[in-house]
């Protein structure tokens, strides 16, 4: 029982880490294509082994512990970020009954894990005892916190329509129609909030190279940096998976008719995640960075009232037409 569970978890972890590795390669390749470059093409066939080489390089680099840093917290911060990005995957259903822990408060669990994610960043910024790191951490924390509010309201809208907090039953509730059809504005809002939540372009102010060098992880080198990097990208994958589950019907095929049902369910899920990954990368390549006041006013003055209003609208419609799920 125990050994089997550990093996299952390790298999998910390995898949996530490989996914992260090739996310970075895809990022460099696609951005290279957009900017009319080739991207990495030396290590392996067309650069396919590049992420492994990068990982190995970071692994054998020297870990620098800054002299005026708070050592314990400084080491703890990247571990926390990395660990939190992995444990979220436990509740993600990869296919029908293909899930590690089918808990009935899956969404709340994911929300709690992402709320804890702020700590890795604050810890890193504070314990580094460096100005750039501190400013980056502050910005990042305020930004993540602001967008978590609207993410919460969007999640409630989905829960209202599916009548469950369990991610598998949310997917099964979309068998007739994916939630991205009736809730198209929420789908877009959720994806943009996911960009802000993962400190991704165009909301990458915490890492703005031009002003803060690299934000909260300036002082990190070698594996500390790599753990942050892996954690961030795993979080992006997790948010893509969550968007796919909430709005694009998770593992469900596009249409429930012959040519689409040949492809296995989990492959459909992977394809949806891959689509979001490409969207993440294209966003990075195409959009300029937001100003901080614009970012904040977008979160508080547009997303929050709009998602709350949409929630009330959904509840009222479901209530008045008696469409509520039991």
């Amino acid at each position: 029982m125990l050994v089997l569970t550990i093996l299952k978890i390790l298999s998910v972890v390995v898949i996530v880490l490989i996914g992260v590795a090739y996310f970075t390669l895809a990022e460099r390749k696609i951005m290279g294509t957009i900017q009319r470059r080739k991207g990495p093409n030396v290590v392996g066939f067309q650069g396919l082994l590049q992420p492994l080489a990068d990982g190995l390089k970071l692994f054998v680099k020297e870990s620098i512990l800054p002299s005026n840093a708070n050592k314990t917290l400084f080491i703890l911060a990247p571990m926390l970020t990395f660990g939190l990005s992995l444990i979220g995957w436990v509740v993600i259903p990869f296919g029908e009954s293909l899930v590690l822990a089918d808990i009935n408060v899956g969404i709340l669990y994911l929300l709690a894990v992402s709320a804890l994610g702020v700590y890795g960043i604050i810890l890193a910024g504070w314990s580094s005892n460096s100005k750039y790191a501190f400013l980056g951490a502050l910005r990042s924390a305020a930004q993540m916190v602001s967008y978590e509010v609207s993410i919460g309201f969007i999640l409630i809208t989905v829960v209202l329509c599916s009548g469950s907090f369990n991610l598998s039953s949310i997917v099964l509730a979309q068998e007739k129609v994916w939630f991205c059809v009736p809730h198209l504005p929420m789908f877009v809002l959720f994806f943009i909030s996911a960009l802000a939540e993962t400190n991704r372009h165009p909301f990458d102010l915490p890492e703005a190279e031009a002003e803060l060098v690299s934000g909260y992880n300036v002082e990190y080198s070698a594996m500390g940096f790599a753990l942050f990097f892996l954690g961030e990208y795993a979080n992006m994958l997790l948010m893509s998976a969550l968007t796919a589950i909430l709005f694009l019907g998770g593992w469900l095929p596009l249409l429930d008719i012959f040519p689409f049902t040949i492809i296995p369910n989990s492959v459909w899920f992977g394809l949806k995640i891959g689509g979001f990954v490409v969207l993440f990368i294209v966003m990075r390549a195409c959009l300029p960075r937001f100003r901080y006041d614009q970012l904040m006013s977008l979160g508080w003055k547009v997303f929050l009232p709009f998602s709350l209003g949409w929630l009330i609208l959904t509840a009222s419609v479901l209530m008045s037409f008696n469409w509520l799920p039991n």
């Binding site: 550990i6 978890i9 692994f59 660990g83």
Partner: peptide, 24 residues
């Protein structure tokens, strides 16, 4: 129901400690 969650917690803590110390 929650058993895998706790195991995953321990596995991820263990993994991050292993990676960091090995590299160090």
């Amino acid at each position: 129901e929650y058993f895998p969650v706790w195991i995953a917690l321990f596995v991820s803590i263990f993994l991050s400690i292993i990676i960091f110390t090995l590299s160090y």
